[in-house]
Amino acid sequence: MLNNILQISHQPQIEAMFMKHYKEWCLLSYSYMEDMSEAEDMVQDVFVKILNRKKNTEILDLKSYISMAVRNTSLKKIQRTKKTEQIKDYNLFALSPSHEEYLIDFENKAKISDALRILPEQSKRVFELCVLEGAKYQNAADVLGISINTVKFHLKKAYKILRFTLRKTYF
C-alpha cells in the first residue's frame, strides 16, 4: 500500500493515512500520556509537522515513521511535564529550615556575594545574565553587544574565579 517510497509532498496520501490510522495512533499516544485529549493533540501535532516540512525527503515506510514520531512526541511531552511539576504533598513545616540552617545559608550567600564582587565587570555581567537570570548565550551576547564566544569565555573565567574563591566553602 504506502509501504513503498513516498515523498512528503504527497499531501492527499498523507491525509488518507491520517484518516485511516488516526484512532490507532491516538491509542498509541494514550498508552504513554494516559490522557486522550493530550494523545489526540500529540497525533495532530505530528501530522502538522509532517505536512509543514520543507524538506522533500523520502520515507520508506510512512506508517512506521508516523508511529515512531507519535511515540517520541508523547515521550518528550511527558519529560517536559515532569520537569515543570511543582512540589506536591510535602509537609512544608518539615521542609522549613531551622534557625541554624538559616544562619548557614545566610553566611553562604554572603560568601557568594563577596565572590561575585571579585569578578571582573564584564565576566560578572555575563555571569549574572546567563546563570542568575537564565538568559541564553545568544541573548546575553545581543544585550552586551559581544559575540557568543566572548560570552562563553567570560562564563568560563567567572566559574574559574568562583571555584578558586569558594574552594573552602561547603554548600
Rank of each mutant, 00 (worst) to 15 (best):
I5Y: 07
L6W: 01
L6P: 01
Q7Y: 08
Q7W: 02
Q11D: 02
Q13F: 01
A16M: 09
M19W: 04
C26H: 03
S29C: 12
S31E: 05
M33C: 15
E34S: 15
D35H: 09
D35V: 02
E38Y: 06
A39H: 05
V46I: 11
K54A: 11
N56M: 07
T57E: 14
T57N: 13
T57Y: 12
T57C: 14
I59H: 01
D61F: 13
K63S: 14
S64W: 07
Y65I: 11
I66Q: 05
S67K: 14
A69S: 14
V70Y: 09
T73A: 15
T81H: 14
K82C: 04
T84N: 10
E85V: 10
Q86A: 10
Q86L: 12
Q86K: 14
D89G: 03
L92A: 02
L92G: 00
L95F: 10
L95E: 06
S96R: 14
S96D: 07
E100H: 04
E101K: 14
E101C: 04
E101I: 03
Y102K: 15
L103S: 07
I104S: 12
N108I: 07
A110Y: 04
A110N: 14
I112D: 00
R117H: 08
R117I: 09
I118A: 05
S123H: 12
K124V: 01
R125Q: 13
V126T: 06
E128S: 00
L129I: 00
L129G: 00
C130Q: 01
E133Q: 11
G134H: 00
A141G: 09
A141N: 03
V143L: 15
V143Y: 10
L144A: 09
G145R: 02
I148W: 03
I148V: 08
N149L: 05
N149E: 05
K152G: 03
F153Y: 14
L155N: 05
A158C: 08
A158F: 03
K160Y: 07
K160H: 13
I161L: 08
L162K: 05
F164D: 15
T165C: 13
R167T: 09
Y170K: 13
